[in-house]
């Protein structure tokens, strides 16, 4: 059911192929992500789900020998066009990484980093954004008294939520999450998952996860990738209950992976 086309598409991927040097990692993927929903990308290790995710904000450009073919349309505009400004793109497509990576700065400075690099200098706006973003990331109550302490003093789960706050502070359209909970304990994971549920009201979220229960819990749609191919894509409840494809079924029932 790879021809699943949800309504209100924000990000459309057309025949995307990705190469590391001569070897192809993604073999022509077509997928559409709907607005203000959570889409999970699942699949066994090395299936290309993270690589695919990084194609959406062109983080793969950092890899010298990489090459991309095909199109990724953000609001109908191909992000791989020569006219695309990568900096502008990344402001619209935020990202949260597998390992939390707050800057060695204060909590406050971490949140407004995206604004600062965009040339923003308005102190009032900073204050407002810090509060809304931290509230949005469900961190405000925990850190409001120590905004100017180092972010490195937070716990693992708090750091990850700070990274989410940092990502939403610049008001992106899409937030990419690359296994955001894989390094967290169950309690923190639960909080982040809860947070994702809140965030979907305002943002389009694409989340890569290893954990099928997590995908089942947080996502509206799920895409299963295997060896660089999109095997199956559909609403989460359907895909988990009635997978159309044998490979999908084998994977979600734990026969491999």
């Amino acid at each position: 059911m790879t021809d699943y086309k949800p309504a209100n598409p924000v990000l459309e991927v057309q025949d995307l192929r990705f190469y590391y040097g001569d070897s192809r990692a993604i073999h022509g993927v077509d997928i559409t992500f709907p607005e203000k929903q959570v889409t999970a990308l699942i699949g066994p290790s090395g299936c290309g789900k993270s690589t695919l995710l990084r194609c959406f904000n062109r983080m793969n450009d950092l890899i010298d020998i990489s090459r991309v073919e095909g199109k990724v349309l953000l609001d109908g505009q191909n992000i791989y066009d020569k006219s695309t400004d990568i900096i502008e793109l990344r402001r619209q497509v935020g990202m949260v990484f597998q390992k939390s990576n707050p800057f060695p700065k204060s909590i406050y400075e971490n949140v407004i980093y995206g604004l600062r690099i965009a040339g923003e200098k308005d102190k009032a706006l900073f204050d407002e954004r810090v509060e809304t973003s931290l509230r949005g990331a469900a961190l405000w109550d925990e850190v409001k008294d120590r905004l100017h302490d180092s972010a490195l003093g937070l716990s693992g789960g708090q750091m990850q939520r700070l990274c989410i706050a940092r990502a939403i502070a610049v008001n992106p359209k899409v937030i990419l999450m690359d296994e955001p909970c894989s390094a967290l304990d169950p309690k923190s994971t639960a909080r982040v998952e809860e947070l994702i549920g809140e965030l979907r009201k305002n943002f389009t979220i694409i989340i890569v996860t290893h954990n099928m229960q997590q995908a089942a819990r947080v996502s509206d749609n799920t895409a299963f990738l295997f060896e660089g191919n999109l095997i199956e894509y559909g609403p989460t409840d359907q895909l988990f209950v009635k997978p159309q494809n044998k490979q999908t079924e084998d994977y979600i029932t734990g026969r491999f992976g």
């Binding site: 983080m59 990344r90 935020g94 990202m95 990484f97 990576n101 995206g114 990502a167």
Partner: peptide, 8 residues
Amino acid sequence: AASLALGA
């Protein structure tokens, strides 16, 4: 990566 992903 965090910095670049924020559009720096």
